[in-house]
């Protein structure tokens, strides 16, 4: 039996060459950050939705990276679930967006603020 901790520590650079965990995390954080900025800055519902997807995937990359790092499959399984659900959610959300667009003929999120205080 191979010690999993040892395996993880040793195997990572071997397979990936010079790419370490930190690179993955950097990409993940960058994607998440872009998503946040996009979500906050844009008003187009579709773009905002795409930005949330971006954040999702950013988080997914981090999960996979950690999963690989700890040699623990849970994270990867989790990401598969997230991807599946995200697909379903994307279908639903885009459907909603289309519906909203039909109602107001605009994709501006500001158009839907009746419940504001």
């Amino acid at each position: 039996m191979i010690d999993t901790a040892l395996f993880a520590q040793a195997a990572f650079p071997e397979l990936m060459g010079g790419i370490t965990l930190y690179h993955y995390l950097f990409v993940s954080a960058a994607m998440f950050g872009l998503g946040v900025i996009g979500f906050l800055a844009r008003r187009n519902l579709i773009i905002m939705f795409l930005c949330t997807e971006l954040m999702f995937q950013g988080a997914g990359i981090a999960l996979i990276a950690f999963s690989r790092y700890w040699m623990n499959a849970t994270g990867q399984v989790f990401v598969i679930f997230v991807l599946t659900i995200a697909a379903a959610e994307a279908a639903l959300a885009l459907g909603l967006v289309v519906y909203l667009f039909r109602r107001r003929h605009t994709l501006d999120a500001q158009a839907w603020a009746e419940l504001s205080g």
Binding site: V36, F39, L40, R43, M48, A109, A113, L115, G117
Partner: peptide, 18 residues
């Protein structure tokens, strides 16, 4: 008194959340 904070802007909610 807390109502004005709910301005209906998705982005401001996101900022609040963040």
């Amino acid at each position: 008194s807390l109502r004005p904070s709910q301005n209906g802007l998705l982005q401001s909610y996101a900022v609040g959340m963040g």
